[in-house]
Computed example of a mutant assay.
Amino acid sequence: MSKFKYHIMTVTIIALIILAGCGNENEAESSDVSKEMDYTITGLEPGAGQTETNEIAIETYDNLEGWTQDLSSTGAMLSALDEAIKAEKPIIITAWSPHYMFAKWDIKYLEDPEGVYGEEEDVITIVREGLQKDAPEAYEILDRITFELEDVENALLDAQELEMDEVADKWVEENKDTIANWTEGLDEVSGESFELVTTPWDDALFSGNVAKKVLTDFGYDVELTPVDPAVLFEAIATGESDASLSPWVSQTHGELYEQYEGEFEDLGPNLTGAKIGLAVPSYMEIDSLTDLKPKK
């Protein structure tokens, strides 16, 4: 064998040994991280929708065998996240967007190749039938209203210190150009009543309060009422309420959407990128649920 061929073979063998070592090291790191987290997902309240979805994930992924959830409350989960990040320790939490957790901490979703948590969703604006004829200015404003995910999450962080109507007022004041685009070319009204309904979720309360502020400044007498999602769809379908910016489709409120489809008008998304899943601090060197290890 020539010295050149011998040299090439030696280099190749060394490279393979290094790669194998890196692979074993990464696998060991992943195993250690899972063990350090005690094979536990820091979760929400018992009975919450995502709590049940987490159980499905544990059953679906073979590498999550032996994993459990630590259930208490959203506040307790976020406190645990804060403590873990301050200490740069590993933690895996139940997450959803939009939520202020993504504005306050540097965290990332873990990939979900089995699709347990579903695809990203849209938050849509729906209005009662006949609204375009009865209140064309409000209809047009609502049709133009859209939000960026990051803006909503930053606003929800502000809501930890302020009331939601104050957060909406602040956002409208800081986004005058956006509001001008929503109302451009429309004539103000004078005291016409308008009924908005919203789910009681924070992101929906924010968008609902922004819409209320904009419509009120435009001359409408606006009432904003938080209700259960089923009541919301029924109120729009029957004409009892005029509009909502709250529904998540096509999964979260998909059944209600289908149940009342044809009895309301869908103006399309006011927010894209809504989702649920499991998240970890960005400093953790794992990217997928499949990077976790089963409990031995």
Results as ranks from 00 to 15, higher is better:
2 S>R: 15
4 F>Y: 12
7 H>E: 09
9 M>V: 13
11 V>W: 11
11 V>A: 14
11 V>G: 06
13 I>C: 10
15 A>N: 10
20 A>W: 15
24 N>F: 15
27 E>T: 12
30 S>L: 09
31 S>N: 14
31 S>E: 12
32 D>L: 12
37 M>I: 14
37 M>W: 04
41 I>C: 09
41 I>A: 10
42 T>D: 11
44 L>S: 12
45 E>T: 14
48 A>K: 09
51 T>F: 10
51 T>A: 13
52 E>T: 15
57 A>Y: 13
57 A>R: 09
65 E>N: 14
66 G>Q: 05
69 Q>W: 08
69 Q>D: 10
69 Q>H: 08
71 L>M: 12
72 S>M: 08
72 S>E: 14
74 T>C: 06
76 A>D: 14
77 M>V: 09
77 M>D: 07
79 S>M: 10
80 A>R: 14
83 E>K: 11
85 I>F: 00
85 I>H: 00
86 K>R: 05
86 K>S: 08
88 E>W: 01
89 K>S: 06
90 P>N: 04
90 P>K: 03
95 A>D: 12
99 H>C: 11
100 Y>K: 07
102 F>E: 11
103 A>Q: 05
104 K>Y: 13
104 K>D: 15
104 K>E: 15
105 W>E: 08
107 I>P: 01
109 Y>Q: 11
111 E>Q: 13
111 E>P: 04
111 E>G: 13
112 D>E: 12
114 E>I: 12
118 G>T: 13
120 E>D: 15
121 E>L: 07
122 D>Q: 10
125 T>V: 08
126 I>C: 00
126 I>P: 00
128 R>V: 00
130 G>I: 03
130 G>F: 02
132 Q>F: 02
137 E>F: 00
143 D>V: 04
145 I>F: 02
151 D>P: 09
153 E>D: 06
153 E>K: 10
154 N>R: 14
156 L>R: 07
158 D>Y: 15
158 D>G: 06
163 E>I: 12
163 E>R: 12
164 M>E: 09
165 D>H: 11
166 E>D: 10
169 D>A: 10
169 D>I: 04
170 K>I: 08
170 K>E: 14
175 N>Y: 11
176 K>F: 09
178 T>N: 06
179 I>T: 10
180 A>F: 04
184 E>Q: 10
186 L>N: 03
192 E>W: 02
196 L>D: 01
196 L>M: 01
198 T>P: 00
200 P>S: 07
201 W>P: 04
202 D>W: 09
202 D>N: 11
202 D>A: 15
206 F>S: 05
209 N>I: 02
210 V>W: 06
211 A>P: 05
214 V>W: 05
217 D>H: 04
217 D>E: 09
218 F>A: 00
219 G>K: 00
219 G>L: 01
222 V>F: 00
224 L>K: 02
226 P>L: 03
227 V>K: 02
229 P>Q: 04
232 L>C: 01
232 L>I: 02
234 E>A: 04
238 T>W: 04
240 E>H: 05
244 S>Y: 00
246 S>A: 08
247 P>A: 02
247 P>G: 01
249 V>H: 02
249 V>T: 11
251 Q>V: 15
253 H>I: 09
254 G>I: 05
256 L>G: 03
260 Y>M: 01
260 Y>P: 01
261 E>M: 04
262 G>E: 02
266 D>F: 03
268 G>Y: 05
271 L>A: 07
272 T>H: 06
272 T>S: 10
272 T>R: 07
273 G>Y: 03
279 A>Q: 11
281 P>R: 03
284 M>V: 09
293 K>Q: 14
